[in-house]
């Protein structure tokens, strides 16, 4: 418990070995980042020409296969990558929503703005930039696309946790066809029975391990959790303890078993000064120790 595996391991290595390890670690990170960026580029390229399935499918009822691929490909995307996809689709005259087979609209005439909802209720009244309107085939697709966008993580994919990366994207208009929805429901059922609780446990475990990001996953520090060996049967504390007399002075300061450290820390520091020990080191160590005990 008191010795850290990482420190004992690194201290036996030469400086060159450690330097090499650090270099390799950073090279790995850069490679990972490059791989993900390339993946996003290739996915964007694929989605420019989506959807693959045409009639009877459309944006309000996409084909299950297209919807599935769309969701999978979008996983590493940030909102900015998604915006880039919309730009690329628009360059090719497609509606910005990747599951829509329609061309985008071209507004006639010049001017930067358009007025919407003139004969509806006051709340529908809107002034919109022409450029914004021309990204889509219809206002419905603008909504569908935005619905997806807000679900994308702002964090770059290589810094996300495992759970964040596995998050599923919902569509405003999910596939309606029988086979697809059945398949999807079965898939969801599977997740719910097997994973719903497991997912949460795994997330908690990942958090506890500090296994949060890719950076941490292949980190330089080896983190091993060592359980404390318990050799005797635990006993509830009782007032009859022998050392009670030693605690009598401070017992009135104890709140639900916790004694505030005001007095004891000062005392400890005093002792350390007498020992000539490095105060900073002592503080750090003791703080980490308490963490481990928690």
């Amino acid at each position: 418990m008191s010795s850290y595996p990482a420190t004992s391991a690194t201290s036996s290595k030469t400086k060159e070995e450690r330097d090499r390890e650090v270099a390799l670690y950073h090279a790995n990170l850069i490679q990972q980042r490059k791989d993900i960026e390339l993946e996003i580029l290739l996915s964007t390229e694929t989605l420019i020409d989506y959807p693959l399935a045409r009639s009877p499918y459309d944006a309000s009822n996409p084909s299950p296969a297209d919807a599935k691929t769309f969701k999978e490909l979008l996983r590493p995307f940030q909102p900015s990558d998604y915006d880039a996809l919309i730009v690329e689709r628009n360059i090719n005259e497609h509606c910005g929503y990747a599951l829509c087979p329609n061309p985008r609209v071209k507004e006639e005439g010049g001017g930067r703005f358009r007025i919407l909802g003139m004969n509806g209720k006051a709340k529908d009244f809107k002034v919109v930039e022409k450029e914004e309107l021309e990204k889509w085939c219809s206002p419905a697709c603008a909504k569908r696309a935005l619905y997806v966008r807000v679900q994308l993580s702002e964090t770059v994919a290589w810094e996300r946790g495992a759970m964040e990366n596995a998050a599923n994207i919902d569509l405003l208009d999910e596939p309606k066809s029988e086979d697809g929805s059945l398949a999807e429901r079965m898939e969801k059922m599977d997740i719910e029975t097997d994973n719903a609780a497991g997912k949460k446990d795994a997330a908690n475990l990942a958090l506890e391990r500090g296994d949060k990001t890719m950076a941490a996953r292949n980190a330089l520090v080896n983190i091993n959790i060592q359980e404390k060996d318990v050799s005797k049967v635990p006993q509830a504390p009782s007032l009859d303890d022998k050392d009670l007399s030693g605690r009598l002075d401070s017992m009135h300061l104890t709140l639900e078993g916790h004694t505030s450290t005001f007095g004891s820390r000062r005392e400890r520091r005093h002792n350390e000064e007498l020992d000539g020990a490095n105060i900073d080191d002592g503080e750090e160590d003791s703080e980490e120790d308490t963490d481990w005990q928690l």
């Binding site: 960026e37 390339l38 580029l41 964007t44 990558d81 880039a84 996809l85 730009v87 690329e88 360059i91």
Partner: peptide, 11 residues
């Protein structure tokens, strides 16, 4: 040129 298109160059 769009930023996404420029990423093709290193690729």
């Amino acid at each position: 040129i769009t930023p996404a298109a420029l990423k093709i160059i290193p690729a």
